[in-house]
Design a protein around this nucleic acid. Structure first.
Ligand code: ZN
Ligand code: ZN
Ligand code: ZN
Ligand code: ZN
Lengths: 155, 155
DNA sequence: AAATGATATGTTATAACATATCATTTGGTT
DNA sequence: AACCAAATGATATGTTATAACATATCATTT
């Protein structure tokens, strides 16, 4: 069940910080949850709105940005720079470093899916770059298109 | 010589619109030139500043944005969404449709180079997307890394 | 030459996105 | 309790972008 799945992700994150000074506070948990339950990427301001609606308590935008930055550091979320929106990281728990997050974004319904492009394909891109005199590093890919649902319902 | 090369690009653009109602006005020419002579991508506001400095005449930011939109339509420039900056299209004149522009961006000196990734490699990306249930369309790639110069001068 | 229409630009306001700075609160440690 | 670091609040400001409306410029038609 989705509810449990979300709780598990939060538990894992909590464990991760149990020993350090870092805290997974109520606000952080709530915002992580907002990202997790949303079907689509949200802007910082949409997150703040959602927070207000869900908890009848307003949160400053500044705090949202700070928490998003915290999430970015901790690999709990990502920013989509092509849309200025934020998504939870799908690489739950453990070992993901998310150095080069990769997304498929539907131009119609706005869903975004975090994928893992094979080393082989990424290697090809690196080769192309090298030929042009660049050595790639932390390249986030945001690929646009239409999801199957939206292709089906095309007018 | 760079100066002549720029003039040639502008001439080509002018020709392109000679018959249509669309005009390559002084402001558009100047802004295209600003983009062309800059070593690095510029923000809309930097373009406006540059315009003011170069021509001792101020231009409203709004106008800059409109001209950049015009350039985008006409495939004369592109926006880098990862940095909110603008670059001239390198596919001069003729046949480029630039449906999926591709860039290498140096994280140190900020240079950006427009490249052409082979159909084969792009095809691989499309395959990955299809497997995940997405059909790609107009995906701009912004690959980050270090250019050769900056790798050499690394501390 | 005057009227018209299309394209381009100016002007002002505001939306949307993001960071800087300093004060205060919170929660764990000694 | 006293202390300290982390987190949050509050306010101001910076940055990027569009909306809405008015005016200017230039080519075409009358
Ligand atoms: Zn991730
Ligand atoms: Zn869709
Ligand atoms: Zn191009
Ligand atoms: Zn460089």
């Amino acid at each position: 069940m989705k509810e449990q799945w979300i709780e598990r992700i939060i538990e894992q994150a909590k464990d991760k910080y149990a020993r350090t000074g870092v805290r997974l506070t109520t606000k952080r948990k709530r915002i992580l949850k907002i990202l997790l339950v949303s079907d689509i990427p949200l802007s910082a301001y949409e997150i703040a709105d959602s927070y207000n609606n869900a908890f009848g308590e307003s949160i400053p935008e500044m705090t949202v940005y700070r928490i998003l930055n915290f999430f970015e550091q901790e690999h709990l979320s990502h920013k989509l720079s092509s849309t200025n929106k934020y998504v939870p990281c799908s690489h739950h728990s453990n070992s993901c470093t998310c150095e080069a997050p990769q997304f498929l974004i539907c131009g119609k319904c706005q869903t975004a899916e975090e994928i893992s492009i094979s080393k082989a394909v990424m290697g090809e891109l690196e080769k192309v770059a090298l030929k042009a005199g660049y050595s790639l590093d932390e390249s986030q890919l945001e690929l646009k298109g239409l999801c199957n649902k939206c292709i089906g319902s095309e007018e």
